[in-house]
């Protein structure tokens, strides 16, 4: 069955792409996931890959190589040959590795096969808090500087960046308490150990729906389909608009100098896979916005994201090295 499918795909590939001297891929591909099993990146990778395998006519063997906020997986794929047989399944993190002083490799060293989807942030609060709007929250923080506790996930994480945006739009002083991830942070929020937290809609949607946390505002220029009732941050603070849209994203990369025909083959397979209705539905259900872009379009998105976020961190005093050092332009 597999052989027939593989042969069929190879035959089709040979017809469609005469530029490839030999049938490609010659063997199974390896996909290295930069986050652990069960996390957001892992779920996206494992849900998408079967559809891509069908389109590619080859197997992609997935491995989790978590650690170092994605630096280890990025390094591993970068060390592999540029033959398109080793794929990096990643999230936004490497785009901040330079300014955070973690590594010298980012997505500029890779070719974006597909930027699959992006997430949207939402600011949620403990249900016992009186706030009903972002303005009320900000007023309370201003009245009690350094008293209100914000859940966070460490430098460069979504809460940290959205906190920096808020601070840039309207100066606020909060206590940021870092947790091991969005899940543990939301748990602490429900236990009353922090007062509010910016998190991904994907992580918070079900807790909001159950009324266990209170949505304050979505970090997007307009309301999102998953949370149609929740006001966008720009309603109270139009200044947010210049950073948006912003959010975590998930994608697949190969080394930049991978041969063009191989890139094209992968781009095609991932574009078909990411358009599969089952996958599209999963993304919508998780509160992600499907992007399914590649090549120059994806590169432009990645550059803008890096520029906006790096300079935000620089202005918030959270960057260890200035984006200027790496030639990252101001947004």
């Amino acid at each position: 069955m597999l052989t027939r499918r593989t042969l069929g795909a190879l035959a089709a590939a040979a017809l469609a792409r005469p530029a490839l001297a030999q049938p490609w891929p010659p063997r199974d591909l390896t996909g290295i996931i930069m986050w652990g099993a069960g996390g957001a990146t892992d779920v996206v990778a494992r849900a998408l890959t079967p559809h891509v395998e069908a389109a590619l006519g080859a197997k992609i063997v997935l491995q989790n190589r978590p650690g170092g906020v994605g630096a280890i997986a990025t390094q591993a794929v970068h060390a592999a040959p540029a033959d398109g047989l080793t794929l990096l399944y990643g999230a936004e993190n490497p785009q901040l590795h330079k300014v955070l002083g973690l590594a010298q490799i980012d997505y500029a060293d890779f070719f974006p096969v597909n930027v699959i989807a992006r997430g949207v942030g939402v600011i949620v609060a403990n249900t016992s808090k009186p706030w009903t709007s972002l303005k009320a929250l900000v007023d309370d923080i201003t009245a009690n500087p350094g008293r209100v506790r914000m859940g966070a996930t460490g430098p460069g994480g979504l809460p940290h960046v959205i906190g920096a945006m808020l601070n840039a739009v309207t100066p606020v002083r909060v206590i940021a308490v870092p947790f091991d991830g969005e899940g543990p942070g939301l748990t602490a929020l429900q236990g009353g150990h922090v007062d509010f937290m910016p998190v991904g809609v994907a992580a918070a949607a079900e807790h909001i729906r159950a009324g266990r946390v209170k949505p304050i505002a979505v970090v997007n220029p307009e309301p999102v389909p998953t949370l149609p009732e929740v006001a966008p941050v720009t309603a109270d603070f139009p200044g947010f608009a210049r950073y948006l849209p912003w959010g975590p994203f998930y994608g697949v990369w190969v080394k930049r100098d991978t041969p063009a025909p191989v890139r094209a083959r992968l781009v095609e397979a991932f574009r078909t896979g990411a358009a599969n209705p089952a996958f599209v539905e999963l993304m919508a259900r998780n509160g992600n916005i499907l992007m399914n872009i590649s090549g120059d379009e994806a590169d432009a998105f990645l550059k803008r994201w890096q520029s906006v976020t790096s300079w935000l961190l620089q202005e918030a005093g959270a960057a260890r090295r200035s984006p200027e050092e790496f030639g990252i332009p101001r947004p």
Binding site: T187, A205, E206, R209, R285
Partner: peptide
């Protein structure tokens, strides 16, 4: 609550997502 009690249940929550459920308090 849709909150993992340990590393294994964290993976199980991911599995529920993949199977089309929404793990959470609901």
């Amino acid at each position: 609550l849709g909150i993992p009690g340990d590393a294994v249940t964290a993976v199980l929550i991911g599995a529920l997502f993949v199977h089309g459920l929404k793990p959470g308090p609901m």
